[in-house]
Design a binder for these strands. Structure first.
Lengths: 329, 329
DNA sequence: TTGTAAGCGTTATCAA
DNA sequence: TTGATAACGCTTACAA
């Protein structure tokens, strides 16, 4: 296979010169730049990323650290969007990404995890689905060994950015819409997991709305489980005017429970997953563009790798109702 | 970070000796082996995979080449299973995997694609969702530059293995069960895409069943599209006794169409995706364990990389009916 | 502006 | 059975 050496020889310049052209270094004459590029094109040279990674302290790989929620399979949809959004953007930015699941690193100490990542030349980590329980990850983020971008976790630092929709606002919006449309007073709110960052943020939204409208709100943790949401609804749904859920999956569980109970209560969800279109009943929900969020996370990672400071990025959300007719392709 | 050099110094041996211990070379005394391993443990040394990849001609990365079907989002579920099955097994076998989407390499010539993979030190490629139209991929497979494992494509060679369920048998089985249970004679078969390998194989199963039971079968291509299956069913469903579909998504489209037409016809699908549990009506379908298939594909890749010849691996399938109550977690 | 050469952390080939 | 040492293909001081 053609290497930088071949290009250098063919163009009649030094290897370092080719490297400089390829990496857009200053102080290369327009003339040699053109000559080198011509040879690169002609020989079809593609730089070996592995060698570049090994050699350079700047270039490195970024890991997508994903929490596969085995409890709720429908979450596949979200993770897949995360992965594809990230990979596409990474290719655009010429970043090398690898996908890693939480299960592969859980139970590791900070040291072990650090060595694991370093041994793979990983310079940056994008973390999806982190919860407060993930203490080691927390240390990893604060440790500055790696650049980190966290999704949905409200933490920023010199080497850490955060990308997320405005969870509180979104929860507030979708609940308000549903409550207003149906003139509700007594609300059953099914929250996520006790240790979840998003759970807190969404809860904020509900609490604000409660104050504002003087609602009566019963809060229960559904742990993002469809089954638990179902059971909670079976237990408390009858005496409430509506059910506000912190995820679509839970909304589906709640809705199915209500149907089984043969009573109608408006239900709203959160996420905007396609599955919502298959339930029969339309519900309000918050659509998050997971691919766009992930794509943006990769952009932020690039900036961090370039030495910029961490920032907080808020992505837009929209309120939707998912209809079968609109989802089907 | 601690490198092989540090280990060598600490253990009082040469770097090459450490390397030999790490890679289980013969001709290393048990004594030094123990001494080296002790130091490795104590220092928490983890070999740098990037350096190893660059240096060695044996070790390399394997790419998961996945066709993201943007037309049918529910397919996310399948792809996600493929990815996670592969990544888990790869970690077990200490293989470095990266995920690549068809869209990133489409329109490349064989040369371009080859260089693209080589530049990333990719030695093996596992291909998911390949169709007959993918001519360049076909060349890539036959070209022997890389080891390849294809999922659901009936092709094996010196450097190519194939992993798949017995598509014809599975289609035969599920259709027969459905037809027998409902005493059908006139069957509407909604096939996949014209250029799909699985489409052909499944068609074989139906044809065999047709001969065997003397059925009257109308075949239409639904292109794995829920919408197209819906339309086909709206058009031909009334005069048939049942609808056999080559995918769950199409089965769902067909079933929803029948519900809208207010007539009942048994429908069966193929794949066993979770979505089937959300449709309301139960249907027979073939469950494929995508994670296991993918996991096995990685094992086969390892063998190919070790110099073994390509083989054909047939994975088991089972007939199931997916109920909401059983799917929900 | 260009070229020389020393790494990067391994593996692999030979000598010893 | 071990140890030097040359690759692997690139980046990056530093020298010219």
């Amino acid at each position: 296979m053609v290497s930088i050496k071949d290009v250098a020889k063919e163009a009649g310049v030094a290897i370092s010169t080719v490297s400089k052209v390829l990496n857009n270094y200053p102080n290369v004459s327009e003339d040699t730049k053109l000559r080198v590029m011509e040879v690169v094109k002609r020989l079809g040279f593609v730089p070996n990323t592995v060698a570049a990674t090994l050699s350079s302290k700047n270039s490195g790989r970024v890991a997508l650290l994903i929490k596969l929620n085995v409890e709720t399979q429908a979450i596949d949809e979200i993770d897949m969007q995360y992965i594809s959004g990230a990979i596409s953007k990474a290719r655009e930015l010429q970043l090398d990404v690898i996908t890693i699941f939480f299960s592969m690193v859980e139970n590791m100490t900070l040291d072990e995890m650090t060595r694991y990542f370093v041994s793979q030349s990983i310079k940056g980590i994008i973390i999806y689905g982190m919860s407060k329980e993930d203490k080691v990850l927390r240390q990893l983020i604060e440790n500055d060994t790696f650049k980190t971008v966290v999704i949905d976790v409200p933490y920023i630092g010199a080497t850490t950015s955060c990308v997320s929709v405005n969870q509180a606002k979104a929860q507030y919006d979708v609940a308000k819409k549903t409550i207003k449309e149906n003139n509700c007073r007594k609300v059953l709110y099914i929250a996520g997991t006790r240790d979840g960052y998003v759970t807190d943020a969404r809860l904020e939204g509900i609490k604000q709305l409660k104050e504002e409208l003087g609602l009566q709100v019963l809060i229960r943790n559904g742990n993002f489980s469809e089954l638990q949401a179902r059971n909670i609804t079976l237990k408390y749904g009858k005496n409430k005017d509506c059910v506000v859920c912190a995820s679509d999956l839970m909304a589906i569980g709640a809705m199915k429970a209500l149907i089984d109970m043969d009573i109608f209560r408006p239900v709203c969800g959160f996420d905007g997953i396609v599955l919502m279109g298959y339930v029969g009943k339309q519900m309000n929900t918050v659509r998050q563009n997971f691919a766009a969020i992930s794509s943006r996370a990769v952009e932020e990672m690039q900036k961090l790798l370039d030495g910029e400071e961490g920032i907080r990025v808020t992505m837009p959300h929209e309120l939707v109702r998912l209809k079968y007719e609109e989802i089907i392709r």
